[in-house]
Design a binder for these strands. Structure first.
Lengths: 324, 324
DNA sequence: ACATTATATTGAAACGTTTCAATGAAATTA
DNA sequence: TAATTTCATTGAAACGTTTCAATATAATGT
């Protein structure tokens, strides 16, 4: 491996001079600087990142820790994060896992954004500190070096319920995702709360469980209709658009009409939703903005060395289309 | 920051003993080992990754370098890679960028898998070496520490052409993606070649260009029909399923029927393709398998310290459905 | 010509690990 | 009991950087 020492030798200067030159210090004269740079290029010198990190006690890397590379939903968010991270002269490293978190534990990152239900609160508390502030996207936590940037999930569900009640629906069902998802459970909570608020009864048998995928939504709805034929709600709210698509597919297959027999409302407004047939009424979540806010909030924390108020909440809106 | 030195002090042993204990060396007696481990836990010791890397000259991290977090296509592949990487006791770091590649240049990874048209061949040649073998997924390269794992794109297109000709189509159009994509250009090449082979003329005006997204596919097809109304091919092959979906949407909107007026064949077989209406005839690409093969090939190279034949090619097949 | 200041270069220490070689203690052998 | 072997522990060097403090050189002022 070619090191700074080699560069220095070839350029006929000391290691320190070589280092200063490569880092563009103003102390060094132009000529020596060029001499060094040339030597470096000639022998193919490349900085050794870990060594640099060790000395500087920072990596200039931000980590995004997910529980999986799942679905179309997250890529927009990643792009938002990526933009901000690059702007700030850092790199973004995406890491998906369900058990170990070495890159987080071993200080490979200067900051972290977390959306990973596998990580326990206590674990996060133990690793977050001044040198490693964290943003959590999937839980509520109030501790010194951890900040949350959450989606207004409850409000979204409330909007959907309100919208359906206005349209005269009496009995509304709900298709939830897996219980492990914070966003998912909040959406369910918001739904129940709003129903209650309007004195609308909701029986647990109209609560379907799936796992956020299209196929699981299809299956859940198919089985539900099979079992409760002739006695189903006139509308369903689904915890995300993919399940809504699955539900619609099942309904069609059972020779029922959307929205005439059963109206469907989704959540997220992923790209295909407006092109689906029928186009899906849904709660639009600005995913990229979410990522941007999260990343900004992280850098603010890294600057201030302490907890900080997150600026600008994520704003959602109901997109009224044909499915509901 | 709490270091090994602190642990050693608290446990009343030397730094070396602490290090050996934590790494589970058999030299150390059980009691001291426990003493050290306890001390470490008490003061919240965490290994400093960069320091360790510096000393050991390896990071145990594999990097996946993409040009963007785009589309539903790549997540399956990532999962395949991730599985193999974890199995081998490494971590996977995903990194998307269009300019700098610091994490690659500065030896943050022990191996890399590359699918990023922004990286030039010469750049890759300059960084790949014994300590950093690379697998390229988006180009043909024959150099010592670089191995390629490619999709049989040409064959896929040929299969599609063959299938359509069998069905009696005479004039077949093609919707290509952006020219920057290796896979895309190979698919186009395969298409042209097969047409020629069967003595079928193909005029450049039946070649549409889009950028692999649904919306771009929609737009391209919409404009094409608008311009050449009454005089369009009876079938189109699209370089990926997303564009195929867009194309179908445009065709429907122009009050033409798929496949009766225009048949459509896609490429990739992404999840929604079989649930789309109409379901899409397409070339199925086993994405996860692709990732697995790539990762295996990488580790093989890391072991053998030299170029290696990749075992098991990626196998594709044509899924005959209703759109074409 | 000499003292002073400014400028350019360098030696050496430090970052937190790992690991070799050396030491010390205990156990075995003769 | 002395000599030898085994086992556990430790000191010190090394990994490739950065950066402080020190030195060497050139430029300035008197």
């Amino acid at each position: 491996m070619v090191t700074l020492k080699d560069v220095a030798k070839r350029a006929g200067v000391s290691v320190s001079t070589a280092s200063y030159s490569i880092n563009g210090s103003s102390l060094i004269t132009k000529e020596t600087k060029q001499k060094v740079l040339l030597a470096a290029k000639e022998i193919g010198y490349r900085t050794n990142g870990p060594a640099k990190n060790l000395k500087e006690k920072k990596t200039n890397i931000i980590g995004l820790f997910l529980s999986g590379f799942t679905g179309p939903f997250f890529t927009d968010m990643m792009e938002g994060i990526q933009d901000v991270v690059i702007q700030n002269g850092y790199e973004l490293m995406v890491y998906a896992s369900d058990d170990k978190h070495r890159l987080l534990v071993e200080r490979y990152v200067d900051g972290a954004i977390i959306l990973n239900y596998h990580m326990e609160d206590s674990f996060l508390e133990s690793i977050a500190d001044e040198k490693l502030p964290c943003i959590v996207l999937d839980r509520e936590m109030e501790t010194p070096f951890i900040n949350q940037v959450l989606l207004p999930n409850e409000r979204g569900s409330a909007m959907a319920v309100h919208y359906l009640l206005e349209k005269g629906h009496k009995r509304i069902g709900y298709m939830a995702g897996s219980t492990e998802s914070y966003d998912g459970e909040m959406r369910l909570k918001g739904f129940k709360k709003e129903m209650q608020k309007h004195n609308h009864s909701f029986s647990e048998k109209d609560l379907l469980r799936a796992d956020f995928t299209e196929s699981s939504g299809y299956l859940a709805m198919f089985q539900y209709i099979e079992k409760h034929t002739q006695n189903v709600p006139t509308a369903f709210i689904c915890a995300n658009d993919e399940m809504a698509m699955g539900a619609i597919r099942a309904i069609k297959e059972k020779n029922l009409k959307v929205p005439d027999d059963i109206a469907i409302i989704g959540f997220d407004d992923i790209y295909v939703s407006q092109h689906f047939s029928p186009s899906i009424t849904t709660i639009k979540v600005p995913r990229k903005q979410w990522g941007i806010i999260a990343a900004h909030s992280l850098f603010k924390m890294m600057d201030s060395k302490y907890k900080v108020e997150t600026d600008g909440a994520v704003s959602i809106e109901l997109m009224s289309r044909t499915s509901g």
